[in-house]
Structure formats: structure tokens, C-alpha cells
Design a protein around this nucleic acid. Structure first.
Lengths: 232, 232
DNA sequence: CCAAAGCAAGAGCACTGCTCTCGTGCGCGT
DNA sequence: ACGCGCACGAGAGCAGTGCTCTTGCTTTGG
């Protein structure tokens, strides 16, 4: 008994991981649309029906890959933040995290498409995905909160009804964040992924050539919009 | 001879349109992944092989739908611009166009996903899609150009290499647009679709409730970022 | 030590995209 | 106006898919 859990459970975990690995390979090679349970099983030397002992359906396999992808990009963001020097400015932290997310997306376009492209399984994201999906957002929130705990430049005040929304959002996610910053932050969050998606999905083809410089500059402007840049 | 083209060609055009209509229906109902040539043919009372006389492959059908979707959203944008009063400010025009695009996207989520979600056919967008795909961009460009022909507020100057990129972009698309405005415009363009995609794809679930007010406010900030808002 | 539970394997169903062949009827050019 | 040709629809068929069910074997825990 050299294992804390039974050998059975361990074998199951290993096979499950092998399936996900092979699925990820096929995903990276041909995209989500062409991911085939039978092909995965074939490549693993097992028969297709055996695979259903591990994933009840193709969508469940995809959901597992989605969760892993959210975790991977979330980890990339957290790591980028952790590697910042203690004296780094909020804007510098913000830009570094944005660049890390972009780098991950460009390195794993199909996995990125899985999570930030069209929702492929039947329309409603499974509940299991919401926690990993929020990791990047939490990183951005923490940067903004640190910045505005010191002194930040408040973004333009939104209209009253939106400001109330901002208070609700702040109450939910970051108690001590000014409401106006909260709504600016959510907007910047969505806009960040707009920039990344357009680049990853080829919309910048023949439009933007200096992609890295362009993105960095845009990310810095986003930091400004959230009020992370101190006036000179 | 009541038709300029032969009856044969006309019948062909009608069947082609019927196929696209039915395909669009199934697209709206079940999404692109479940769009099936055989089901379309079945619904139209023909056998599946007959459909291949009109579209050489499933991807070709999807491409046709993509082109139509680009045209539809482009037309929505152009119409929104055309309906602006002559004395409307550039910022008001910008916001109106943004709202029109958003409205179209929310009304046709699956078609929107087809063009601004993950690229589903084999990775490279067919050449035929690039012209219709640029219609929304052209509308935004025209607004920015009109604004800066008068006097606009220049966006922050990007670094030198990006400024050169801006000059190239301006030369390609809008000869008389300041380079800094060009790069801000492209960024705002991508960010606009980031906002819309996040809402359409459910990323704002339990995050943003006042979606319309939120979007309008974000679009106005985008107008500011492009330099469309005059100082008070 | 044996029953129970987990597992792989195979056959099979309904469906998909796509190809090929084969008549037939309609539109077109003469 | 007529007949030829070709575009078209129909059908069978292939390879592949997701998923289910039954059948045995192996492992595990009481």
C-alpha cells in the first residue's frame, strides 16, 4: 500500500489524465470541432466504449478541457503577477499580467478558443467552470485594489444606475473598491480579451503587423482607463 | 423572357437562397456545431446529395453564412450611422453604431458567434470574407475621420514603432487620419467586440446586470479613447 | 474466499459528410 | 419548334462519428 488511495483509484486517475492529454493534443492539432472520442481511444489503444467509463460524453470531456484551460491561463496570470518586483507600479503589474495572458493565448490558440471563443457545448457553461474562469479576473481585481488602496486616479463617474451596479459588483468581489473603478475594471477586462481574441482569431490579419507593441500599448491604455496610472 | 438571366440560373439562385435560409434557421436553433447538411436537405424535401450541387461542402455553406452575417452586421452599423441627425456629434454617432452592432449580436447570437467567435472552418478565413468583414470597421473609420477633419483630441502618442504602424494603417484605410488616431481606433475596434462577445457568450453572467447601461457607458469611454469627445 | 463492483471489449444503432452512378426532364441554341 | 445536352435529383454506398448494451474478465474489499 504505497499509495494513499487504492491502486484502482490511482489507475483511474492516470487513465483519465492520459485521455485528457491525448484530447488536448488533438485539440491543439485540429481544433475542438474535430475532436473525436473514437480517435482519442484509438490513439490510446483502447476501444471507444471503454472511454465512456471516464467521461460520460464528449461534452464532458470538453468541459474538463475547458476547466483545465481556465486554470492554465489563470495560473499564467497569477505567476506573472507573482514575478513582479515589490516596487513595480500598478500599471506595470497590470501590463505584465495582460501580456502573460496574451502569450498563453497565442501559444494555445485552440484551448483559448475553447474558453473565450464561441461556447461550444449546448450553450450554458457548466457550474464547474465558473470558479476557474474567474482566476484572471481576480488577478486584475487585486491589482486595482492595491492601486486604489494607495491613491489612484478615479475613472470617469458612470451614470447613477451604473454606479449602483458598481457598488454591487464591488460588494461581491472586492469590498474596498470604489464603484466607478469596479465598472471600469469589468469593462477593461472584457476589452482585454477583445484585443487578444482579435489577434488570436486572425482579425488583425493585414491590419496590425507590430502585434506585440500594439498590444502592449493598448494594455497600458487599459491600465489608464482603470485609473492605475498616476498623473505625471 | 421576363428575366434578365435564364430561368435555370434563377431557379438555382432560389434554391441556393432556400438552403441558406433553412441553414440559418438551424444555426439559430442549435448552433453551428450541430448544423447538418442532411438535416437541411431533409427539411427542404430533397436528398442530401442534391445539396452538393449548390454547396461543394459543409464548410462552403458555413462560409456563405459567414459572409451573410458580416454583411448583416455591417448593414446594421451603416444604417445606424445613416439615421443620425446631421448635427449629431462624432461621439454620439460612435455610440449609436456601437449600440447597433451590439443589438444585432444579441439578436443573432449564433450568427455572431460564427463571425466573431472561434473560427470554425479549417483555420484560415476564405478570401471572400475579408471585404464584408471590414464593413463595420469602415463605418468606425469614417466617424473618426470626420471628427478629426474638424478638430479632435489626439489620443496619447504611441511609441515610435507603433506610430509608423499607424501611418501604414492610415495609408491603407484612411489617408487623412492621424497615425495615433489610427492605432487607437483599431484598439477600440477590437475592444468593442470584446465587450459584445463577453455579453453574448455569457461571460457577464452574475457579473453585470445592467447590461445596456454598462455597454453604453463603455462605448462612450471608447469614443473618448479614440479622441472623439471634445473637452468641456 | 467469494460476491460485488469496476473495467475492457465488441457488436450495433442512428447519424454525419461526402462520392459515385444513373435516369430524366427542362432550358437552351439552332 | 424541336431535339440535344446538361444540370439536376435520386439512390446506394463508404468511412467516420457519438453513444448504448451485453458479455466476460479482473480486481478489490468484506
Amino acid at each position: 500500500m504505497n499509495t494513499v488511495q487504492g491502486a484502482r483509484a490511482r489507475a483511474r486517475a492516470e487513465v483519465t489524465a492520459a485521455i485528457k492529454d491525448e484530447a488536448r493534443r488533438q485539440l491543439a492539432a485540429d481544433g475542438a470541432a474535430k475532436l473525436s472520442l473514437r480517435a482519442v481511444a484509438r490513439e490510446l489503444g483502447m476501444v471507444s466504449s471503454a472511454l465512456y467509463r471516464y467521461f460520460p460524453s464528449r461534452d464532458d470531456l470538453l468541459t474538463a478541457l475547458i476547466v483545465d484551460a481556465y486554470d492554465a491561463v489563470g495560473e499564467a496570470a497569477e505567476e506573472a503577477l507573482a514575478q513582479q518586483r515589490p516596487d513595480a507600479s500598478p500599471a506595470a503589474r497590470w501590463t505584465a499580467v495582460c501580456r502573460a495572458v496574451r502569450t498563453w493565448a497565442l501559444a494555445h490558440p485552440h484551448e483559448y478558443a475553447l474558453i473565450y471563443g464561441s461556447p461550444v457545448p449546448g450553450y450554458t457553461a457548466p457550474e464547474a467552470t465558473v470558479v476557474p474562469a474567474s482566476r484572471v479576473g481576480l488577478v486584475l481585481i487585486s491589482i486595482a485594489r492595491d492601486a486604489h488602496l494607495g491613491k489612484g486616479v478615479a475613472p470617469p463617474k458612470p451614470p447613477a444606475r451604473l454606479l449602483a451596479e458598481g457598488e454591487r459588483m464591488a460588494a461581491d468581489f472586492a469590498p474596498d473598491l470604489p464603484p466607478a473603478v469596479a465598472v471600469a475594471l469589468v469593462a477593461a477586462w472584457a476589452q482585454l480579451f477583445g484585443l487578444i481574441s482579435f489577434e488570436a482569431f486572425g482579425q488583425f490579419h493585414r491590419v496590425v503587423e507590430e502585434r506585440e507593441a500594439f498590444f502592449t500599448h493598448a494594455a497600458e491604455q487599459l491600465a489608464r482607463a482603470v485609473g492605475l496610472v498616476l498623473p505625471a
